[in-house]
Computed example of a mutant assay.
Amino acid sequence: MIEISTSPATTTLVIAGDLDLAERDQFPEIAARVVGLRRQLLVIDMCRVTFMDSTGAAFLISLADSGRKRGGATVLRGCDDRDLFVLEVCGALDLFRIDVDHRCDPPAGANAS
């Protein structure tokens, strides 16, 4: 599931579940909506991503590349090491700013230890 929200300067995508080949049918519509919003900053919240393959990485790369061509920036927050590794293997990590300060909320129903 991918949710889109906006503010005057920012578009935020909140991604939950798998970001992979099985989800690719929704990528063109989402990319068109994000590009059409023409915000300078795209924040991609990956706190609830459970798996990302090269198809999901290609989707993120296309979003970042579109934004960069318009002079914008793309920030990844909540990315785990394996997602960053996939982007690094694709040679695209430098397209993104990584929010190292963001802390994901615990999953709903999680007990605090």
Rank of each mutant, 00 (worst) to 15 (best):
2 I>F: 05
5 S>Y: 04
5 S>V: 05
5 S>P: 01
7 S>P: 05
10 T>A: 08
10 T>W: 03
11 T>K: 00
12 T>A: 04
14 V>N: 08
15 I>P: 08
15 I>Y: 04
16 A>K: 13
17 G>Q: 05
17 G>P: 08
18 D>H: 11
19 L>C: 09
19 L>E: 06
19 L>R: 02
20 D>W: 00
21 L>G: 00
22 A>N: 10
24 R>N: 06
24 R>D: 06
26 Q>H: 07
30 I>L: 10
31 A>N: 01
32 A>Q: 14
32 A>I: 03
32 A>W: 00
34 V>S: 02
35 V>T: 14
35 V>Q: 10
35 V>S: 10
36 G>Q: 09
37 L>W: 04
38 R>H: 12
38 R>D: 15
38 R>T: 06
39 R>L: 03
40 Q>V: 03
41 L>W: 09
43 V>S: 01
43 V>K: 00
44 I>K: 01
45 D>E: 14
45 D>Y: 04
46 M>L: 15
49 V>Y: 06
49 V>D: 09
52 M>K: 01
52 M>C: 13
53 D>Y: 03
54 S>K: 07
54 S>D: 06
56 G>M: 02
56 G>W: 00
57 A>N: 06
58 A>V: 01
59 F>Q: 04
59 F>N: 04
59 F>V: 08
60 L>R: 09
62 S>P: 00
65 D>L: 04
66 S>E: 15
66 S>A: 15
67 G>V: 00
69 K>D: 14
70 R>G: 11
71 G>N: 09
72 G>H: 12
72 G>I: 01
74 T>S: 15
74 T>Q: 05
78 G>S: 08
80 D>W: 08
80 D>A: 12
81 D>N: 14
84 L>M: 12
84 L>C: 08
85 F>N: 10
85 F>K: 14
85 F>R: 15
86 V>N: 01
86 V>K: 02
87 L>E: 02
87 L>I: 09
88 E>Q: 14
91 G>T: 09
91 G>M: 10
95 L>P: 03
97 R>I: 13
98 I>F: 03
99 D>A: 08
99 D>H: 08
102 H>A: 10
104 C>V: 05
104 C>A: 13
105 D>H: 08
105 D>K: 10
106 P>M: 07
106 P>C: 10
107 P>L: 10
108 A>E: 15
110 A>T: 15
111 N>M: 06
112 A>F: 02
112 A>V: 11
112 A>Q: 11
113 S>G: 11
113 S>A: 11
